[in-house]
């Protein structure tokens, strides 16, 4: 895989636009994410945050504009193929595989890092068996990174909500992403769980994974982000460090409303 050139953004959006029935959910959006950064995307409800995440991960197609990842255009590449290039994501409303254990869920995350197809699987070739063993080891390691190793053999549906959030994170990590897209990782979490999540994300980032997160929880955003992009009505209204963004009048207005309509 070719790494981004020095100084170049790992992920870059140019003029990104997505229309829904004539309305722009994301409009003419351009921004970059530096390699190694934790970048938060915030904004009021309906600002286009989740639409942006779906565009970046390939779950919806842009109406206009382009997305570059590691220097290459990816906006025509289907979602599943982006994972192999080093882009993984989680979901706001949990998408866990039922009737599978926590470990098996994370082993699915190894899909793009293994190759055995139907014939190899049916015949249980030595290569297929080796891959399964390697996937098991890597999945256990990913579970350990989020602190779920003791729950490995529990049915996913028997995990608590907070554990399921971490399980999704472990599953995304198992694909060895360069970029992790997190859709509201703290939504629905209690305070202590939010802090645990913040610690886990920071730790993942410290190991070289670039993170983009969409989040409402300001406690999490302000504590871990290096860089914040603020959206309102699908447009950028501010971008910069947490301190700079918090001081921006347009941001305060978007969140609190103007005096006269408060």
């Amino acid at each position: 895989m070719n790494a981004a050139a020095p100084g170049e953004a790992l992920l870059e959006a140019r003029g990104l636009t997505r229309m829904f029935a004539g309305l722009a959910a994301v409009q003419e959006l351009s921004f970059g994410v530096a390699p190694g950064a934790i970048k938060a995307v915030i904004g009021p409800n309906g600002a286009g945050k989740t639409t942006l995440l779906n565009l970046l991960s390939g779950f919806i197609e842009p109406s206009a504009g382009e997305i570059r990842f590691g220097g290459a255009r990816i906006d025509a590449i289907p979602a599943h193929a982006r994972v192999g290039r080093g882009m993984a994501r989680t979901f706001q409303n949990l998408q866990v595989f039922g009737r599978m254990t926590a470990l098996e869920n994370v082993m699915v995350g190894r899909h793009v890092r293994s190759r055995a197809g139907y014939f190899a699987g049916l015949l249980s070739t030595p290569a297929s068996r080796r891959e399964t063993e390697a996937a098991r080891a890597a999945a256990l390691a990913a579970l350990a990174r989020v602190g779920l190793e003791r729950r490995a053999h529990t049915e996913a549906t028997d995990l608590s909500f907070g554990e399921l959030k971490l399980l999704e994170l472990a599953r995304a990590l198992a694909s060895e992403p360069r970029l992790l897209l997190l859709d509201e990782p703290a939504a629905g979490l209690a305070l202590a769980e939010t802090d645990r999540m913040a610690g886990v994300i920071r730790e993942i980032n410290a190991r070289g994974v670039t993170v983009v997160l969409v989040e409402h929880n300001m406690r999490l955003v302000m504590s871990i982000s290096h860089d914040i992009l603020v959206l309102n009505f699908g447009r950028r209204i501010a971008e910069g460090s947490p301190e700079a963004v918090q001081a921006e009048p347009a941001v305060i207005e978007a969140y609190l409303g103007r005096d006269d309509d408060a």
Partner: peptide, 29 residues
């Protein structure tokens, strides 16, 4: 069939039966 269920493709098809969205997000075609 038993072989397949314990292989990469077996895990993939079990996965997509509960969430096609998550299966895609995990690189499954």
């Amino acid at each position: 069939i038993l072989n397949l269920l314990h292989s990469r493709m077996g895990r993939a098809l079990r996965a997509l039966s509960t969430s096609e969205l998550a299966a895609k997000a995990n690189g499954i075609d």
